[in-house]
Design a protein around this nucleic acid. Structure first.
Lengths: 141, 141
DNA sequence: GTAGGTGCAAATTATTTGCACATGT
DNA sequence: ACATGTGCAAATAATTTGCACCTAC
């Protein structure tokens, strides 16, 4: 079964006159297949996507993710380890709870934290990326 | 004139029985010399620090920054470009306003944004890193 | 048919590591 | 004196790029 997010992504590509190649389909498929809260590295996406598109090259995955990011189909998350992670962009926006003990990443939706954006700042805020660090339930005992 | 932050950093090193080498002094000095809101890359810190310690090697800068981070003397900031940036840790904590147009980074203190940490989440939050993206005053026209 | 996309291998960039030598305490 | 630190060069890891070939439209 083809996920809704895949179809939406494919449509966005077509709308902007980008070609719908098996490689792009496979990357989109991999991102949704990994599921919510997956935050896959490029390498991980590559490995999953190759199952549906065996001749896929790693460089193509990088190029595809760059394109999908530019089209706001996916979003990039860079954690302290400096490696890029990607996830399908969703609405409403969400933020991340990163466990300092086990490294697991949970998600939290924007409206669960009544985002109070700064006042009296001469800066026009368009979006926010919030990383909370702490201990997840099981690591906190 | 030697900055207060340098002296504090040096004392923290001594307290924990780390040696106070010219290399470590130079890195601390470079970080404070760059000033508030500098967010220097490792390479930049290396270039500044070398002015006071000519035989300094880049690997030592990496090792020193890793140590200073571990001792909470500095903090590491990883932006979307994936390169590590470092700044002296201050109190109160602050967050970042990143201009999407010119890339300049402003700072905002924690208490200026009534930090609203999530409620009803089974996660023990210890700290937060908030990146706001948008347009700085001059780029917004 | 052709512009746009891809695979591969080589290049680049950021960071880490091994090891012989140097130095702060 | 000696553990700790350092410089250098080589290793590793992540990402980017050049180019000949391929394919979705």
């Amino acid at each position: 079964m083809v996920e809704r997010a895949v179809v939406q992504g494919e449509n966005k590509l077509l709308e902007k006159n980008y070609r719908l190649t098996p490689q792009r389909k496979a990357v989109l498929q991999a991102l949704t297949q990994a599921g919510k809260g997956a935050h896959c590295t490029v390498e991980e996406i590559y490995l999953i996507a190759r199952e549906n598109c065996s001749q896929l090259g790693l460089a193509t995955v990088y190029r595809t993710l760059e394109l999908l990011t530019r089209l706001s189909i996916v979003q990039c998350l860079v954690l302290e380890d400096g490696r890029a992670r990607y996830e399908i962009k969703r609405n409403p926006e969400h933020h991340h709870l990163i466990c300092l003990e086990c490294g697991r990443i949970q998600e939290i939706e924007d409206d669960q934290l009544l985002p109070v954006y700064p006042q009296n700042v001469s800066f026009h805020i368009l979006s926010a990326s919030i990383h909370f660090f702490g201990l997840c339930r099981s690591c906190a005992n």
